[in-house]
């Protein structure tokens, strides 16, 4: 499988980009070339130079430092928000699957349908209006709209698996429903969940950037790609390159996770290649 993966171009490119973003994010935890929150008004809107590799923003902060710390924030949002969606969503989905057609199943799925009726970012904006702006609340909001995505996928996949003979065998052998779910169902739906998670990861990064762009996500002085993009558009006439970097960072990260997801789908599910 590894051999097949390494020959898959979008998997390799996606993995490379993802690893790069990941390494940069880890680097930012320990080191940034400058203090990304240090304001030096006298040095504002400087073009890229040896001291400020990507120039400075409207308050004289180092754009490169902000960008790599922004990567950390973007990944943090992705990991936690997808984690929330994955854990709660999969649990709900599997519970629904065990009682297929029951009132509980119907209830869970109709609530999911209901949330699907609203665009994800709109839901997040609505949630943030109640919770108030901020990074933690943005993570919660993005996490919440991830729940139904995973619930639905987990239910569908679990239903397929549960129709198999070995599940009937396990049941005949006296294994409890939770045991069957944990030992037989979950391992067999992991592949599809991983693929979906990498897609949701890209969406979470995009959503965080969008919310921060609107001013209700990550709050200053904590840097965020979305807010950097918003701030820089005000100064487009004076510093045209300023908007380029956060925009490229968002595009690259989202592209990386999407390509990784595509590649993973093909690698983990060979049938999709044959089709």
């Amino acid at each position: 499988m590894i051999h097949r993966a390494l020959r898959h171009p979008s998997f390799v490119v996606g993995l490379a980009i993802t690893l790069m973003v990941l390494l940069i994010a880890i680097l930012a935890v320990f080191w940034t070339p400058h203090d990304p929150t240090a304001i030096r008004i006298s040095a504002r809107l400087r073009p890229p130079s040896a001291t400020n590799w990507l120039g400075t923003d409207q308050f004289g902060r180092d754009v490169f430092s902000m960008l790599i710390l922004g990567a950390r924030n973007a990944l943090l949002v992705g990991i936690v928000a997808v984690g929330i969606g994955l854990s709660i969503g999969v649990a709900l989905g599997m519970v629904a699957a065990t009682g297929e057609g029951s009132l509980l199943d119907e209830g869970i799925m109709r609530v999911c349908d209901f949330t699907f009726a609203f665009p994800a970012v709109l839901t997040a904006i609505l949630i943030l209006t109640f919770l108030g702006p901020g990074l933690v609340n943005a993570i919660i909001a993005i996490g919440i709209f991830n729940i139904p995505v995973f619930a639905r996928i987990a239910r569908g996949a679990a239903l397929q698996v549960m129709a198999r003979d070995y599940i009937r065998a396990a049941r005949a052998a006296g294994r409890s429903t939770p045991g069957i779910l944990a030992r037989h169902v979950l391992p067999n739906i992991t592949g599809i969940l991983i693929v979906q998670a990498s897609v949701q990861f890209a969406l979470a990064i995009l959503a965080e950037a969008g919310l921060s762009y609107l001013g209700i996500g990550t709050q200053p002085p904590n840097p965020s790609w979305g807010r950097m993009l918003n701030d820089s558009q005000t100064f487009l006439a004076q510093a045209p390159t300023l908007a380029l970097f956060p925009g490229a960072a968002i595009a690259l990260a989202v592209l990386g996770f999407n390509m990784l997801g595509d590649g993973l789908r093909d690698v983990l599910d060979p049938k999709s290649l044959e089709r």
């Binding site: 304001i39 308050f59 901020g134 709050q219 200053p220 002085p221």
Partner: peptide, 20 residues
């Protein structure tokens, strides 16, 4: 102004969280 003020107060150890 708030972003600048928050950074300046950070210099003397006051951790300012901004709430729009």
């Amino acid at each position: 102004g708030g972003e600048i003020v928050a950074a300046m107060l950070g210099q003397i150890g006051i951790k300012v969280s901004i709430e729009p």
